[in-house]
Design a protein around this nucleic acid. Structure first.
Lengths: 233, 233
DNA sequence: CGCGAGATTGAGGCAATTCAACATCGGTGG
DNA sequence: CCACCGATGTTGAATTGCCTCAATCTCGCG
């Protein structure tokens, strides 16, 4: 059996979980899946709401948040293409998955995936891989949240985004340019700071010549080595 | 084939990863495994050092830490019996596993486990389960690190320990008594605080009648509901 | 043009840190 | 036995980094 046409050129097929599936499994899954784009700010998986669907993230950024009764919020994870969004098996925790930018996804009904997980050890292995990767990232971020100063936190965030958009970035070059996927307030929620502090620290990095900001969302890292140093990585 | 004698009454057999194994697999693994106790402060898996062994934690507490160049430290995870300690597959992250108390473990050579993981989908599923649980805990803790005040952090820590030692604890009772597995400094590294702040907040909880402290390490929670409330959970 | 959302910048306050002194306890040896 | 020591914990005073509150700026949009 052939690999479905839409899957042929799909990134999730190569680096994502779909890479674990055989052509006939892809074909089966494809009968229930649908590609679509979702606007900024949409809920992909309600906090306490029923989880009805999983999806592969094909482009854009998804944020995972937790909220206290009094409204304090913390972003506990960011997902980029080609991550798998949604929780396999039951979960005791309550995270809220929300699009941080306009995203395009390939979504499946929960039942189809669950059935597939049962049957495909390779798929389970990919999920284990991704979960281990997310655990690593979460722990790295705990270091940032618990032990870094505000300036180091902001540098860490910029470094994270820069290297995620351009994996070759760590090897110093002449300017890494990208759009921030988060607002100042969201960055603050990611870093455990206030939005004012984030703004101040960004201004400081600009004044110090580590970054350029053509627009509030548009950043060019002119000195990635310096940024990495300030991030304490 | 029979379940090996040492495995019969082992907690890891029931709630831990060994529960995924068939009698013959247990018998095979048992030929290479060894039970032993380890003193406080020992490294179970070196940071950059080669990982040569995995183990099941049978009693005691293990802390997973990360360290910055300048010595700042953050505890990014605590493990209790019957957790599996050590990282399946390769890891890009560097965490340091150290015993926080005297522990007893059942350790295996890495090769034996890796072979077992390849062959047993059930074992991989258990590992996925534990990894998902750890991810949940890490994210819960990110909320604590990023958005809670010092008093809320300390209350969260005590609540975590209290409920881990006595799972029935959340249903209010007349005093949950336990020994803290961590020193003030270690609690500080867990909470992203200084040890002085931890000490002050513990004193405050004692003055407010939420806890008793017979000795620095010995705590009795007299008002678990109040503690939970102060932890913002 | 006026409006509102998002961002920047400043001033003042407070929570947690830093620095420092003192208390407690177990171990060790004169 | 008790004096001494180091490790661990508690408490106080001063400092500071971040937060809070508030004013101002920019930009897209009806």
């Amino acid at each position: 059996m052939e690999v479905p046409a839409v899957c042929q050129a799909c990134e999730a097929r190569h680096r994502g979980v779909c890479g674990a599936l055989k052509p006939e499994e892809l074909a089966y899954l494809n009968r229930f899946s649908s590609r679509r784009t979702v606007e900024t700010g949409a809920e992909l998986a309600g906090d306490s709401a029923e989880i009805t669907a999983y999806c592969n993230l094909l482009s854009g950024v998804v944020k995972l948040t937790k909220t206290l009764h009094d409204g304090r919020q913390q972003i506990v994870g960011l997902q980029f293409a080609p991550d798998f969004v949604g929780r396999p098996l039951g979960s005791q925790s309550t995270v809220d998955a929300q699009t941080a930018t306009r995203v395009s996804i390939c979504s499946f009904p929960k039942s189809a995936i669950d059935r597939m997980i049962d049957r495909s050890p390779q798929l389970r292995e990919r999920l284990l891989d991704q979960t281990l990767k997310e655990l690593d990232e979460a722990r790295e971020w705990m270091m940032t949240l618990g032990r870094k100063m505000a300036d180091e936190k902001v540098a860490s965030f910029l470094y994270l985004i820069a290297t995620h958009f351009d994996p070759e970035a760590p090897g110093a070059e002449d300017g890494i340019c990208f759009d921030l996927p988060l607002s100042r307030g969201e960055i603050a929620d990611f870093l455990g700071l206030t939005l004012e502090t984030v703004s101040r620290q960004l201004s400081k990095l600009r004044k110090d010549g580590v970054i350029l900001m053509e627009a509030p969302r548009s950043v060019t890292v002119t000195d990635i080595k310096q940024l990495r140093c300030r991030a304490c990585i």
